[in-house]
């Protein structure tokens, strides 16, 4: 089943995060624990690991953009899965 991945809240004061770069592309297979993107916040920049396994079906936020914590940034799932309903 497809899984939406949101911008995580990595600390007490983090309200939003900038996606500096994607470390995966659509079609890539991701394991739990793989690094999926590089984030920059007011306090830190680091790579973020995936809490889920799956194939990258869609990247929702382009590099360079900043989104609030909790906003969906990526969809993982089975290859070819219909995600139009998400």
């Amino acid at each position: 089943m497809a899984q939406k991945v949101a911008m995580p809240k990595l600390g007490l004061s983090m309200e939003d995060g900038k996606i500096v770069s994607w470390l995966v592309a659509e079609g890539d297979v991701v394991k739990k624990g793989d690094m999926i993107f590089e984030v920059e916040t007011e306090k830190l920049s680091q790579e973020v690991e995936s809490d889920y396994a799956g194939t990258v079906l869609k990247i929702l936020v382009p590099e360079g953009e900043t989104v609030d914590c909790g906003v969906d940034i990526l969809i993982l799932g089975e290859p070819g899965e219909d995600i139009s309903g998400l």
Binding site: A6, K9, L10, L12, D51, C69, G70
Partner: peptide, 12 residues
Amino acid sequence: ATEFKAGKLQGF
């Protein structure tokens, strides 16, 4: 851990 990253828990 999961819910902390989802912003549901306070503090650290």
